[in-house]
Structure formats: C-alpha cells, structure tokens
Amino acid sequence: MDIQTKKAGEVIVLEIGGRIDAFTCEKLESELHSIMNAGKLKFIVNFEKANYISSSGLRVFLGAYKKLSENKGQIKFSNMPDPVLKVFALAGFDKIFEIYSTEKEALEEFNEKVAESKKQNYA
C-alpha cells in the first residue's frame, strides 16, 4: 500500500494505492492518527489507485470517523473503484460516510460548508 498526502486549503487529501488489508492497515491508521494529532480534522480519502480493501481497512476508517466526529472533524471519500465500494456497501458504510465520484466534488463540498459558515458568522 502506498499513501500520498497533499494539502488543499484546510483539507488533507490522502491518495491511497494498492491493498488495504490487515497487514497494511496499521500504516494507514498510523498516518491518519499522526495527521489528526497535528490538529488537522478535515480529510478526503481518494481511492483511485486502491485495488483492494478488507474488513480490517473498514475498521480503520470507522475509528477515524468516530474520532473526527468527536472533534467536529470530517472525513469524505472519493474515486472508489466498484469492488471497494461494494465492500463499503456490504458493511453499510455507504449510508454513513460521504462518498463522492471525484476528489473535486468532495473538496467542493468542504468549501461550500466553509462558505456557509462564514456567511453565518457575518450575519
């Protein structure tokens, strides 16, 4: 598994490549925790280059989702290949997580929320 990290404003984008299984998910969990512990609370996980996920990977995302929810953070997902989306759906994760077709759409959703928040502050 390969993880590339980039910033898009306040949002951290993780581009994951390869397999997310019980062996590799420790690296993913460590990366997510490290970024969250640095105070970053907005994530997009781009699965375009991921070719596999097992229940071990789902557990990592559930843990991150819970921790972020407790701290008013958010995690969104994008570019999921069909087999990966199928595993998310079998777990019912497609109903609680925000899954977008593209990274751009996920980022726009974050930006719209920031704009709405600013409008409310000015009102």
Binding site: S55, A91, G92, I96
Partner: peptide, 22 residues
Amino acid sequence: LENLPLEEKLKNGFGIGLIKSV
C-alpha cells in the same frame, strides 16, 4: 447484519459475514 450498529457489526464476526455474503 444490518440490524446491528456499525461498531458492533465489525466486532461480531463481520469478516465471517463477508465470506458468507460474497
């Protein structure tokens, strides 16, 4: 396994559930 909360589902043999599902 739909009637279980997500966290419970992952604890209670979710991997086995996946095997049976696919």
